[in-house]
């Protein structure tokens, strides 16, 4: 094996080092510190993202509790309303107001073409719980970085 000839630093460099020997150390220190702070910046980003996700999770929990509460309120109020409008109550109230059931002779009949159906069934409060497939979370929220990169490559390749 043949040794490489040692290249001699330029006279300018030698002079500069002689005049300020701390320069090289400062540079090394700066590089070290930059690495540490770079790492810290990444960690900060990680904490920031993690905290945001956790906070979003808490918010979701809170919203779920609220949804549950509202669902229960809706169900209860619907039942209460139905109770206050039940057949017996309506009949009694109608009688109090002077109404009476119509007899056959009291009614006038006429033909109405294409009479639209008047029955409308209210949608159930339970439909609040139904989660549409369309609003499912994007895969970006579930995959790893590697998976994302692979997906991006495949997408690009496929395009």
């Amino acid at each position: 094996m043949q040794n490489e000839p040692i290249r001699k630093p330029s006279p300018t460099k030698i002079r500069a080092y002689k005049q300020a020997p701390w320069r090289e150390q400062t540079r090394l220190l700066a590089i070290g510190l930059a690495s540490v702070f770079g790492l810290m910046a990444m960690l900060a980003l990680f904490i920031f993202t993690g905290a945001q996700a956790a906070e979003a999770g808490l918010r979701v929990q809170s919203l779920i509790r609220e949804r549950d509460r509202q669902l229960r309120r809706l169900e209860a109020q619907e039942a209460e309303l139905a109770q206050k409008q039940n057949e017996e109550w309506m009949r009694t109230r109608a009688a109090e107001l002077g109404f009476k059931p119509a007899e056959a002779g009291d009614i006038d009949y006429l033909v109405v073409a294409d009479l639209p159906a008047t029955v409308t069934i209210r949608s159930s409060p339970t439909s609040l719980l139904y989660i549409e497939q369309d609003v499912a979370l994007s895969p970006a929220y579930r995959e790893t970085l590697l998976e994302w990169v692979l997906r991006a490559i495949l997408r690009e390749g496929g395009a």
């Binding site: 996700a53 979003a56 159930s124």
Partner: peptide, 29 residues
């Protein structure tokens, strides 16, 4: 607190169906 896990768990709780009867409340009364 992981949002994805919360929603995936909630997806399981599918609500039941409602039924509408042939019974007419007024005729029944």
């Amino acid at each position: 607190v992981v949002p994805v896990e919360i929603t995936s768990n909630l997806d399981r709780a599918q609500p039941p169906a409602d039924v509408v009867l042939t019974i007419d409340r007024e005729i029944q009364a």
